[in-house]
Amino acid sequence: MTRSHGRGLPGLAGVEHVGFTVPDLEAATRFFTEVIGCELVYTLGPFRSDGTWMADHLNVHPRAVMQRLAFFRCANGPNFEVFQYESPDQHPVPPRNSDVGGHHLAFYVEDLEVAVAHLRAHGVTLLGKPTESTGPSAGQRWLYFLTPWGMQLELVSFPQGKAYETSLDQGGGGGVRLWQPELPDHSQQ
């Protein structure tokens, strides 16, 4: 059955994966599995082309080589497709949020303080201290941190929900609720 809302992509079901490039796939695999807790599902590669396939299909330099890629499953949310490339025109510094193309990955955690302590114990660079959001995001706490190669990540937690949800519960706010992870029910323990 094709889903259609009268606008956008016909059949859109959600975000299947987020892809990003790292300088060292082995080191990134250790970080995502041992520190974050993702599961490595599979790897493949290398891929290269003597023609223009890489430029035509992936918008990278024609002589770029995708050394390897790995797919990770990180609890409840989109999968990660993580690449290691070699390219004559490669820019080795990750973009900041303020750069065009800047981005970050946010991990929802049940207890922000416990997760922050875990990152500290693993020597992860934390950016500032946990921050409490205001406005429609009130009820949310968050903290940015960096991977060993400088990619920006975030911890986020809002166990009691966010302020904007109150208007939804009262029939306002356009009726759209942001995606949230399904948390385990600990009440039976």
Rank of each mutant, 00 (worst) to 15 (best):
6 G>A: 04
9 L>I: 08
9 L>D: 02
10 P>G: 06
10 P>K: 09
12 L>H: 13
12 L>I: 08
13 A>P: 02
14 G>P: 04
28 A>W: 06
29 T>Y: 05
32 F>I: 03
32 F>A: 05
34 E>F: 00
35 V>S: 03
35 V>I: 12
35 V>L: 02
40 L>E: 13
41 V>R: 14
42 Y>S: 12
44 L>G: 15
46 P>S: 12
53 W>A: 11
54 M>H: 06
54 M>K: 06
57 H>Q: 13
62 P>I: 05
62 P>H: 05
63 R>K: 15
63 R>V: 00
66 M>I: 09
70 A>Q: 05
71 F>R: 12
75 A>L: 14
76 N>I: 00
76 N>E: 00
77 G>I: 06
80 F>W: 14
83 F>H: 10
87 S>A: 13
88 P>G: 02
90 Q>K: 14
92 P>T: 03
93 V>I: 14
94 P>L: 04
96 R>M: 05
97 N>M: 13
97 N>W: 00
97 N>T: 12
98 S>H: 07
98 S>M: 03
104 H>E: 06
107 F>V: 10
107 F>L: 14
107 F>G: 12
108 Y>N: 12
109 V>Y: 05
110 E>S: 08
112 L>V: 05
114 V>N: 12
114 V>H: 15
116 V>E: 07
126 L>V: 08
126 L>H: 09
127 L>H: 11
129 K>C: 00
130 P>A: 04
130 P>D: 05
131 T>F: 06
132 E>R: 15
132 E>Q: 14
133 S>L: 10
136 P>I: 03
136 P>F: 01
139 G>L: 07
139 G>R: 08
141 R>M: 01
141 R>G: 03
141 R>P: 04
142 W>P: 01
144 Y>G: 02
144 Y>H: 12
151 M>S: 15
151 M>E: 15
152 Q>S: 00
156 V>M: 11
158 F>G: 02
158 F>L: 00
161 G>D: 10
161 G>Q: 11
161 G>I: 09
162 K>A: 05
165 E>I: 01
166 T>I: 10
169 D>R: 13
169 D>F: 01
173 G>V: 01
178 L>H: 11
179 W>N: 09
179 W>M: 07
183 L>D: 00
184 P>H: 15
184 P>F: 13
187 S>A: 07
188 Q>Y: 13
